[in-house]
């Protein structure tokens, strides 16, 4: 089967000479939630804009469901819904007419019942006849999501969807994303909130300085690159780590009361069980212990730091 989106060798150099993308290759699978992570200016929005037809690329090819975005642009674009990062709305339109307009623009016949359903799902039904200019920022964001969904896209782009959005809307939005995914919609999101990618995404791509640094299943990524830490609160403070435990690379806190052991799943270091055994042998008693999983955020920061 064709991938939902196939990006191959896409580069973009702006007129200013800024090289925003350097030969990006990326396939998005059908029905997945794909999170694109990257620092500001990494090229996330440029990449999305190219796929959606808003920005011309300098080279490379993109196809949506097998439709080339130049040759078969009608088919390609009608499959895609886009919620851009910036809050840009027609201030003087009403909420409902804005959604009706979007649906028409994408070549679909009017469907008031569907528009009503979308507005209800987004808690906008009460505001259906309000002018958009009178809405709060969060409500405007909902309108933009509604506009993107009005033509029943098969692929949805959410560019920084939770920037400046309150907790309630964020939860509503993620509930909606899950519903959409269940109905077979492919979702690509960029976000700064890495815990969201961690919670939502099936796969994660990391982009930095216009290059895809990594694409991986989220679980795989966490397993491969995730680090764990074991912290031991000692019953009696130590002056130094005993010689016999040197191989573990332990860190002793300044007051000598806490030992931290960092390990990962592919570590050459001996495991937790043998550390605990050796502690007993050395006569070191501990009062408490806890373990920490590194989050996707730490993985991400490490990757980006390594790349730059």
């Amino acid at each position: 089967m064709q991938p939902a989106i196939a990006i191959s060798g896409v580069s973009k150099t702006y007129a200013s000479g800024f090289n925003a993308l350097k030969s990006v290759d990326l396939d998005i699978k059908h029905g997945e939630i794909f999170a694109l992570l990257g620092p500001n200016g990494a090229g996330k929005t440029t990449l999305i804009s190219i796929v959606c037809g808003i920005v011309n690329r300098s080279s490379g090819t993109v196809s949506v469901n097998g439709n080339d975005i130049d040759r078969d642009y009608r088919m390609a674009r009608s499959l895609i819904g886009l919620v851009p990062q910036e809050l840009t709305v027609e201030s003087f339109e009403t909420v409902r007419s804005a959604l009706t307009f979007s649906r028409g623009l994408f070549g679909k016949p009017a469907n008031p019942a569907l528009i009503e359903q979308i507005l209800k799902d987004l808690s906008l039904w009460d505001k259906r006849d309000a002018k958009i200019i009178t809405l709060s920022g969060g409500m405007k964001r909902r309108v933009m999501i509604g506009k993107a969904l009005a033509h029943e896209p098969k692929i949805l782009f959410l560019d920084e969807p939770s920037a400046g959005v309150d907790v309630e809307l964020r939860q509503d939005m993620w509930a909606m994303v899950r519903r959409l995914r269940e109905s077979g919609v492919t979702i690509i999101l960029t976000t700064h909130y890495i815990e969201e990618a961690e919670e939502m995404a099936d796969r994660v791509g990391v982009i930095n300085r216009g290059e895809i640094v990594l694409v991986e299943n989220k679980e795989e990524l966490m397993r491969k690159l995730g680090r764990k830490q074991l912290r031991l609160e000692l019953r009696h403070p130590l002056d130094a780590v005993p010689q016999a435990l040197a191989g573990y690379g332990l860190e002793l806190s300044a007051d000598g009361g806490t030992l931290t052991y960092t390990y990962d799943n592919q570590s050459e270091r001996p495991g937790v069980a043998s550390l605990l055994r050796d502690l007993v042998t050395e006569g070191i008693a501990f009062r408490d212990l806890d373990t920490l999983n590194s989050s996707l955020e730490e993985i991400f920061v490490n990757l980006v730091r390594k790349a730059s």
Binding site: S49, C52, G53, I54, Y73, R74, M75, A76, R77, S78, I80, L82, P84, E86, T88, V89, E90, S91, S102, L105, F106, G107, K147
Partner: peptide, 17 residues
């Protein structure tokens, strides 16, 4: 006007010739 306020994105991403 759509260029100025940014709503032109929708026009450019739509399947219109």
């Amino acid at each position: 006007f759509p260029k100025f306020v940014g709503t032109i994105y929708e026009l450019l991403s739509a399947p219109v010739s």
